[in-house]
Amino acid sequence: MQVKSYAEYAASGETPEVLFWVGCAGSFDQRAQKVTRSFVKILNHLNIKFAVLGSEESCTGDPAKRAGNEFVYQMLALQNIEVMNGYGVRKIVTTCPHCFNILKNEYPSLGGNYEVVHHTTYLQQLIDQGKIKLTDTNQFKGKRITYHDSCYLGRANEIYEAPRKVLEELDAELVEMKSCRTKGLCCGAGGAQMFKEDEPGKKRINIARTEEALETDAQIVAAACPFCNTMMTDGVKSFEKQSTVKVYDIAELIAAGQGLDTIQL
């Protein structure tokens, strides 16, 4: 798999088109790593000159900031900004809505001004430009897909349509959960909940959301966020439905539709 870092680009005197911000989940979480690879396969297939920061990338600081630790957040943010401004980064694409939100909305006032796009919007643009052509959509025929809105894409940044438009390309039936778009129910991971136990209550939030997903009778739950992906995958497992209901990131579905990846359905 061909991946070049910004340092390598800089050494060869070239400027990449876009920085692919991989994020911590995309770098370390085994499930999210697959999404990272699928997205890179799409970028490579289209000969897009992208760079990663590799070991120069740090967490954006999102979970610390939302947990209340502004110190840790700003320490990481200012380091990241120093690195990116050093390379003259202009445009960033990321597969994580939390990275997307913080890079787009909160880095500017710390001196980090970039054009930031989430990968679902990026994929939609590539489809609209006719660059992505789906050849292997037969595997999706007759399947039902339900899209789970990520809070940090949806309500936080009002991105509701791009992920859905991308999914429409798959020739499957797109079905909505009881609460969707502005009313989309959280998966339970945001605000640094991903990294701690739920507070005492009747049930876990991901279970409530998975119930809604299962009610649609969809075979595929489409996610656009590594944390939603984990939460929904755990939820499906707790109902022992993992053999009939699969949770995939939109990048994985598109890569499969392009014949770049195989997925189990």
Binding site: S27, T36, S55, E57, L76, K196
Partner: peptide, 25 residues
């Protein structure tokens, strides 16, 4: 969360992975 903050400070990620391994994917 305390553990998460420490990880973020020390190795730039909420989990205990080395920053040098960010390309292992």
């Amino acid at each position: 969360w305390t553990g998460m903050f420490t990880n973020m400070e020390n190795n730039g990620a909420p989990w205990q992975f080395s920053q040098q391994d960010r390309l292992k994917w």
